[in-house]
Design a protein around this nucleic acid. Structure first.
Ligand SMILES: [Mn+2]
Ligand SMILES: [Mn+2]
Ligand SMILES: [Zn+2]
Ligand SMILES: [Zn+2]
Lengths: 137, 137
DNA sequence: ATAATCAATGTACTTCCGTTGCATACTTAA
DNA sequence: TTAAGTATGCAACGGAAGTACATTGATTAT
């Protein structure tokens, strides 16, 4: 568990009990989580605290937010040493329309796209939808 | 205007006055529109009617829904003869973080992505964020 | 050790968007 | 002309995101 505390400290986030629990939860889970998910797991804690924890994690580069097209924000831990802001670090996400789960495919980078003149891209989001490996097995 | 009526008829949508107006509005506008936008333009009409008009248009292949990451559904007219369901017809969208407008880049198709074993893609969504041509000029 | 200071959490409330149920007006076909 | 089907209007609900303010907890300086 000391690793988690270190990770939080290194990113300028004070390792409170709640934050460590949330980090641990997200680390164990291999899929992206929504605020509601965390809410259900930590029912005793207040929603706002969980909400702000995710926001803090995001600002400090501990998690990245995922827009999978469901209109519900999902979050997933960043790879250690990842820099989500840099374009080459952008990986794609897969949303399963069967089990409704969203996963990071960190190996699959978003290919470079040639844009028309005048357009300057600073960020990219690529989501594939379909059947995930668990559901297609 | 007869063209609009024909387009609606061809897609199995009865060309009511309201529907023609909404179609015309979307045709004149070159950017994707949200329900709220239409609401503001046609303030006299009921929100639900506008909502259902968009839903109907979408079901009948007249417009396609766009998820630009703002958590607000946007809609844009489909190209005549386009088949949004087919993967090769999927184009990318650009969301300007300055003017908050989203446009279809119908010429820029989403490149094919190799997925890990077990994953079956049925749909794709690629959104680039940055500065649009109007704002960068 | 105590007080002052700042950060984290809790409580309550608000806004926005999407969605649905049901009533009413309109259009088409028998 | 009546009946059936479709479109529109009206009202309400629910989920998710966000914020203002109070309270608790941890750090630091005196
Ligand atoms: Mn990811
Ligand atoms: Mn488009
Ligand atoms: Zn699945
Ligand atoms: Zn712009």
């Amino acid at each position: 568990m000391k690793e988690i505390e270190k990770r939080l400290n290194d990113n300028g986030v004070r390792p409170t009990a709640m934050r460590i629990l949330i980090y641990k939860y997200m680390a164990e889970k291999e899929i992206a989580v929504a605020l509601t998910d965390i809410e259900n797991v930590f029912a005793k804690a207040d929603r706002t605290t969980l909400y702000r924890t995710l926001k803090t994690f995001e600002q400090k580069g501990i998690v990245h937010q995922i827009d999978d097209g469901t209109h519900i924000s999902k979050f997933a831990l960043c790879e250690p040493g990842c820099n989500c802001e840099l374009e080459q670090d952008l990986h794609l996400h897969f949303h399963c329309t069967n089990c409704d789960e969203t996963v990071c495919l960190t190996e699959q980078k978003i290919p470079h796209i040639n844009l028309p003149d005048g357009y300057v891209a600073e960020d990219a989001n690529l989501v594939l939808k379909g059947i995930c490996e668990k559901c297609s097995g």
